[in-house]
């Protein structure tokens, strides 16, 4: 391949893709909003775990987990580019918008997957690296390639991928999986269905157009609303488990109970929403509250852990 100094001369121009995408587009492939949740929940797992980790190693661990989570997002965008272009929420992503090619996204996602897992293994421990590799596999293959287009239970099972980060953060410190880290996993795992089905209710036309079998499209609004209330109750209960198990204090338990009651209240508002409602305001409110809920629960866990661990106080 002949090149000028500016790498602009090519023997076969048609054979080489020239990107319009800049660094921000590549960053968008990592799903930064999902990544922020991954970073935060992994950090809470890491700080709550019994034991010590050097701050720089801890920072590197969180960075590797973030990049691994981002890599799975890129692989998801590579595989889902065909349906992303049909949905308003995703049509502006870099591949459907034509700014980055699907092949480049695949290479980017695979490279970052291998790099993040290898970094975590070599610099922290191989249990956390193995868990990160499994999380990427679960999200990219089990959820994206298999479940998403197959079953309305897609996000129930696929939600496990988003729930793994606190277990990985915990394993970075202890080199083990414990009941406590599984309790943190359970909060996110049980939270995911109500969160996504609230979105699926007011975006059901989008999902229907793309042929994704979300619960409202397959089983109808009534069934979805019943399931939302069920999972909201399970989420609220799982939120107080850390306090019952004794690895979070009573103040945390009280905060989790109030937040959980709010989650159930918003889910009941959705349940009471008439079928066929066009504005779906209760569903939008539940979606917004669910994000606040998860952030608040993990912030409360973080504060509880820091107060207990670093100041020796029992809340």
């Amino acid at each position: 391949m002949a090149m000028t100094n500016e790498h602009e001369a090519l023997t076969d121009p048609a054979s080489v893709a020239i990107h319009d995408g800049d660094a921000r587009d590549f960053f968008a492939l990592l799903k930064p909003r999902v990544m922020s949740l991954v970073v935060f929940t992994a950090l809470v797992g890491l700080l709550m775990a019994p034991g010590q980790i050097h701050p720089v190693i801890g920072f590197l661990a969180i960075l590797a987990i973030a990049v691994g989570g981002g890599a799975s997002g890129a692989l998801n965008m590579w595989y889902d580019a065909d349906i992303d272009q049909m949905m308003g929420r995703t049509a502006k992503r870099p591949i459907p918008a034509g700014r980055i090619s699907a092949e480049t996204t695949l290479a980017f996602g695979l490279f970052l997957s291998v790099f993040s897992v290898a970094t975590l293994g070599l610099m922290v421990n191989w249990l956390s690296a193995g868990l990160l590799a499994f999380t990427i596999f679960f999200y990219a293959v089990v959820y994206t390639m298999w479940l998403k287009r197959l079953t309305p239970q897609n996000i129930v099972i696929g939600g496990a991928a988003g729930a793994f980060p606190p277990i990985i953060g915990w394993a970075c410190v202890t080199n083990s999986i414990s009941l406590e880290s599984i309790a943190l996993f359970a909060i996110i795992f049980l939270w995911t269905p109500a969160h996504f089905w609230a979105l699926a209710l007011f975006k059901s036309e989008d999902y229907g157009r793309a042929g994704v079998p979300m619960l409202p499209n397959v089983a109808g609004e009534r069934t979805t609303k019943n399931q939302i209330v069920l999972y909201a109750v399970l989420t609220a209960l799982s939120g107080i488990v850390p306090s019952i198990m004794g690895f979070a204090g009573l103040v945390y338990g009280a905060i989790a109970a109030v937040l959980g009651a709010g989650f159930i209240w918003y889910s009941i508002q959705v349940w009471r929403m008439p079928d066929g409602d066009k504005k779906m305001i209760p569903a939008k409110k539940l979606f917004g509250y669910s994000l606040l809920y998860l952030f608040a629960i993990f912030t409360a866990l973080l504060v509880d852990a820091l107060v207990t661990k670093y100041f020796g106080l029992v809340a």
């Binding site: 001369a9 020239i18 990107h19 319009d20 590549f26």
Partner: peptide, 21 residues
């Protein structure tokens, strides 16, 4: 030999990617 001339936008995007890398 046929050359590919990058547009200003493509050059800007390439610069952005290079700096980030």
């Amino acid at each position: 030999m046929e050359k590919v001339e990058l547009t200003e936008q493509q050059k800007k995007a390439r610069r952005s990617r290079s700096v980030a890398l």
